[in-house]
């Protein structure tokens, strides 16, 4: 039996054993309300039992119920997603959403009409990422997402952060979106004051603190005004490496002129041919209150450093030094 024959036989067996649910799908698709959230109709199976169970709970006594309710309504972790819309989900120890809060106006648009309360955090995150994609907040011009988890138990928080980051990555890969996901564990108490002062989320404040620890040339104030995609690009510069933040994927530079174009502008300004250039290094960075390409190279006996406005291609600053 060849590999091909073996595969065909196996395929035939799976096809023969696959149940036919088309009628059910067709009957339900018009009523499938909650577009990105699965499992809603699952409760139908249990509707009758739920009524009986609810009656039993009442009879069982308010004492036990009160205790369980207290534990289930206690916030165990806060998960925040920030693209430009900034959303905060408070969840209990069973990872069920207790509260979904819009932290800025864009987030209100995302959350409008979504019933996240009571869903598990994985389903809720799935729904939110779907909504962010649908509303065009993750696209080729800005593809970075900041995922932050606050938890009194740092081990649990780390694990949750890792799982959610993988799930978001899977959703975006499935939607054929090349996104950059930054994920971090945040101690909310440490960043609470500064986040209030600059009116930004705990997650963004913690990310900025990490960048400042790596590179003290920036100020908190200027970084607080940047988008998550811009911060993600800053982190991609080797001189700003931040170990506490895990990054997957690459932040897009498509809103900018690109490194190649920046190089050409610098060479033209310096009046030299590309063929005479050696030791070329180009990195995207934030300098002179703007996103710039930092282009360094040598030609002949001269070392050059150019800062090119990443948006407009304008030469912002340059230095020229004769090698000794």
């Amino acid at each position: 039996m060849t590999d091909r024959e073996l595969e065909l036989r196996f395929k035939k067996a799976v096809e023969a054993c696959t149940p036919d649910v088309l009628d059910k799908v067709m009957a339900e698709c018009d009523n499938y309300q909650d577009k990105v959230i699965p499992f809603e109709r699952k409760q139908n199976y249990f509707r009758k039992f739920t009524a009986i169970a609810a009656a039993c709970v009442v009879i069982a006594g308010a004492g036990i119920f009160g205790f369980l309710n207290l534990s289930a309504s206690r916030v165990a972790s806060i998960v925040s997603l920030e693209v430009n819309p900034s959303i905060e989900l408070k969840i209990n120890k069973d990872e069920e959403v207790l509260e979904a809060n819009a932290m800025n106006a864009d987030a209100e648009e995302i959350l409008a009409g979504m019933k996240l309360k009571g869903l598990d955090i994985h389903t809720a995150t799935n729904a939110l990422i779907g909504s962010l994609l649908k509303h065009g907040y993750i696209d080729e011009l800005a593809n970075s997402i900041l995922l932050s988890v606050e938890d009194e138990d740092s081990v649990r928080g780390d694990a949750l952060q890792e799982t959610l980051s993988e799930e978001i990555n899977a959703i975006l890969t499935g939607a054929s979106v090349n996104a950059s996901i930054l994920s971090q564990y945040v101690d909310g108490e440490v960043v609470d004051a500064v986040s209030q002062e600059y009116q930004i989320s705990h997650g963004k404040a913690a990310l900025i603190e990490h960048i400042l620890a790596a590179n003290s040339n920036y100020t908190f104030e200027e970084l607080s005004k940047l988008s998550v995609n811009e911060l993600s690009l800053i982190i991609s510069n080797p001189k700003n490496q931040v170990e506490a933040v895990k990054a997957t994927g690459e932040a897009t530079e498509q809103a900018y002129i690109g490194a190649e174009q920046a190089n050409m502008i610098a060479f033209a300004h310096a009046g030299i041919e590309e063929s005479s250039v050696y030791d070329l290094e180009v990195e995207i960075d934030y300098e002179y209150h703007m996103m710039v390409y930092d282009v360094e190279f040598e030609s002949g006996d001269v070392e050059y450093e150019y800062f090119i406005n990443a948006m407009t291609g304008e030469v912002v600053e340059y230095e020229k030094e004769y090698a000794e």
């Binding site: 149940p19 088309l22 698709c29 499938y32 699965p38 779907g130 939607a175 979106v177």
Partner: peptide
Amino acid sequence: LQETYLKIWANAERYTAKGTPMSW
């Protein structure tokens, strides 16, 4: 199986042609 096709139905407009439909 059932949930997958309901979700496909509800999210088809979100599918972009960059990847293969089967992977999605």
